[in-house]
Design a protein around this nucleic acid. Structure first.
Lengths: 342, 342
DNA sequence: GTGAAAGCGCTAACAT
DNA sequence: ATGTTAGCGCTTTCAC
C-alpha cells in the first residue's frame, strides 16, 4: 500500500486508459451495470493493484451523505451501554456506516455541544441513548428533519422512532416472582421520573401490584434522582428509616439494587433472608455479587442493533415512518430473592 | 437552526457583503489576525445568526486533515476499555478531534478491515489498543507513515509511541505484598505471551521472585491462551491438578483471577484462607466480589488521555519522535489476600 | 456505454 | 487587508 491513502480515481483511470467517471461508475454498485464487463474487470483489477480506497470526504461532499452517524451516550463507562454500542456498530458496519460516539454525562450542554460537532461532520442521522421524556434535543432534531432513533430510553414526543425494552413486562416479571415466593409487602425504588425508564417502571410497578392483587398501602414507592448506587443507598435507607415493614425491594435498576444491598447491610439485615432484592438490566458481574442478583435481563446488544438498523432504514427510505419498538426482557432468578421469613 | 446544516460560507459572505475567503479567514483562528476587527466582528455575528457550521468534509478534502482519528479496541464490552476510550475521547475533544471506534474481537482480519474503512475516512492517525508483540498492522502503519500510538499493550517493534502501565512495578507490588503476608510459594497465571502485557507480567514475576529472595522452584508459572475467566479457571485447575503446594496466586489480570476463584472453590478450598489471589487492572465491581479482589489499579482513563494527547502531538508536530511512556499502577489491598495457614 | 464538464464547500496561493 | 482563482476527489448530469 502506498504512503497514506493517496491513490485517486484519476490514477486508476489513467492506468486503465479510461475516463475517471467510468472508474467511478464501475466502483459504484448501482451504476456498475452500465459498464462493459470487460472494462469493469480491468478497472477493478487496477484499483486493487494500486490499493485504491475511495475518499469518503470527497464522496460525502458530493453526495451530501457521509454514511456516518452520531451516537449520544450518557457514559460509556456505565456497563449498560457498551453492549448497546456494540450492537449499533455491528449493525452499522453491515450497511457501510460508521459511528461517532459522544459521552454527555447526562449534561444538556454537552449534548448540545456534541450534536453540533457531529452535525459539522455531516452525520446522516443520530442515535440517542440520552433522551429525557421532555427533551428539547429530540424536538430539535425532529424539527430539523435529522433522522433520529432513540434507544434504551424513549421520549414523550411522538413521531420519533425508538427501541426500548418492555419495562412493563420486566417489572411484572419481578413482582410476580416475588409474589410467588410469598411476598406481599414489596417496596419499589424508582428511577428518576423525567426518564422514560424511571417513569414506566414505576407506573408498571403499580399496575403489577393491582394485577397481583397486592395492596398498594403495603407497597411503598420511593424515587431517586439518578440511576446510581449512591441514590439507591440513600433512598433505601430512607425507606427503612420510615419504619415500614416490607420484605422485598424491586429496584428500578441494578445500580440502585446495589445501593439497596448496602442499605440492608447498614441496618444489620441480610439479603435475601430478611429482604429480597431485584434489579433491572443484568449488568455484567451482578451474577458474581454476594448474593448474586436476581434481575431482569435486557437484550442490550439487540437494542443497539435494532436502533442502528432502524436508523439506516430511516436514512435510506426517507418516507419510512416512525415506530416505537419494544424488546422482551427476561427474568433471571439468582440468590437475592427468597421466601420471606414467617 | 435551519434544516440540516446547509448554511455555507458563501451565504455568510453575501450577508455581510464580503468575499467567502474573508469569512474563511475570520473563522480560522490562525488567520483571523489578518482581518480588520470590525469586519471580523460582523462576520462572526452573521455566522452565528445564520447558524453556520463549517462543513468538515469540505474542509478535510481541501486540507487533507480530517481531525478524525481511528481507535481499535478488542472489545468495548470488556470493562477494561471504556475508561480508556473515555480518556481518548475527552482529550481529543479538547483539541477538536473526533474518534471512530472499531471493535476487533482480537481478530486480525477485523483489524485489517477496520483500518481500511478508517483510512477511507481519511483518519489523521490511529490509536491501537489491540497491538500484539509482533503485529504486522503496527509495522504497516509505521511504514505508511500513519501517525500511531499504542495504548495499554505495546509491540516489540521500535519507533512506535506507546502508553502502557508499568507492568514490572505492578507485579512487584503484588509479589511483595504476598511476601509481606508470609507467602513463599506463589504461583503465577500468566496471560498470552504474544501480548506485551502477558509477557511483561510473567517476566516481571520472575524478576520479583528474585528480588524478594523467593525460590522459583516453589513458584510455578502457567500460561493462558487468553485474558479470560475461562482460561483462568482452566489454568488454575491444571496447576492444582499437578499437586503443587503454593499458597497464593498472582493472576495476570482480574478476569484470570475470577477464574482462579472458581478453580479454588471447585476443589473445596477457600480464598483467602487457603489460597490468596491477586488480580491486575482493578476492573469495576471487583471490589464487590466475594472476597473483594486485591489487585493492581491501572490509571486507564489517564492511559487513554495520554495516548490521545500523544497522537495529536504526533499529527501536529510531524517531526516529533516516538516515545514509550509508562504510567504508575497502584496496589489495592482487599479481601482476597491474607497470611497463609501455618 | 463512455467521455466531458461542472460543482459539492472549503482553503490557500497569488494578486492587488 | 481583502478579493480572485484554482482545486482537493468525487459523482452526476449532459452529450455523443
Amino acid at each position: 500500500m502506498a504512503n497514506r491513502s493517496r491513490v485517486t480515481i484519476r490514477e486508476v483511470a489513467e492506468r486503465v486508459g479510461v475516463h475517471p467517471s467510468t472508474v467511478s461508475r464501475v466502483l459504484n454498485p448501482a451504476t456498475r451495470g452500465r459498464i462493459t464487463p470487460e472494462i469493469a474487470e480491468k478497472v477493478t483489477k487496477a484499483a486493487n493493484d494500486l490499493g485504491y480506497t475511495p475518499n469518503q470526504a470527497a464522496r460525502g461532499l458530493r453526495t451530501n451523505r457521509t454514511r456516518t452517524i452520531g451516537v449520544l451516550i450518557p457514559d460509556i463507562t456505565n456497563p449498560l451501554f457498551p453492549p448497546i454500542i456494540r450492537g449499533i456498530e455491528d449493525a452499522l458496519g453491515e450497511s457501510g456506516y460508521t459511528a461517532i460516539i459522544g459521552n454527555t454525562d447526562n449534561l444538556a450542554v454537552r449534548e448540545t455541544e456534541a450534536v453540533s460537532t457531529m452535525r459539522a461532520r455531516q452525520i446522516d442521522g443520530l442515535v440517542l441513548a440520552t433522551a429525557r421524556r421532555d427533551d428539547p434535543l429530540v424536538s430539535q432534531c425532529v424539527a430539523d428533519g435529522l433522522p433520529l432513533v432513540l434507544v434504551n430510553r424513549t421520549a414523550d414526543a411522538d413521531g420519533v422512532s425508538s427501541i426500548v425494552n418492555d419495562d412493563a413486562l420486566g417489572i411484572a416479571l419481578a413482582v410476580s416472582h416475588l409474589k410467588d415466593l410469598g411476598h406481599t409487602k414489596i417496596a419499589h425504588i424508582a428511577g428518576p421520573l423525567e426518564l422514560s425508564t424511571g417513569e414506566a417502571r414505576q407506573r408498571s410497578f403499580l399496575e403489577a401490584l393491582q394485577k397481583e392483587g397486592l395492596s398498594p398501602a403495603d407497597c411503598p414507592v420511593a424515587e431517586t434522582n439518578a440511576f446510581s448506587e449512591d441514590e439507591g443507598l440513600r433512598t433505601a435507607a430512607e425507606l427503612f428509616a420510615e419504619g415500614l415493614s416490607f420484605t422485598a425491594i424491586v429496584a428500578a435498576n441494578d445500580l440502585i439494587a446495589l445501593g439497596a444491598y448496602e442499605a440492608i447491610a447498614d441496618i444489620g439485615l441480610r439479603c435475601p433472608e430478611d429482604i429480597s432484592v431485584t434489579g433491572f438490566n443484568d449488568m455484567p458481574f451482578v451474577d458474581r455479587l454476594s448474593p448474586p442478583l436476581t434481575t431482569i435481563r435486557i437484550p442490550h446488544y439487540e437494542l443497539g442493533r435494532e436502533a442502528a438498523r432502524r436508523l439506516v432504514e430511516l436514512i435510506e427510505t426517507p418516507d419510512s415512518s416512525a415506530r416505537a419498538t419494544t424488546l422482551r426482557p427476561e427474568l433471571i432468578v439468582r440468590g437475592s430473592t427468597a421466601s420471606p421469613d414467617r
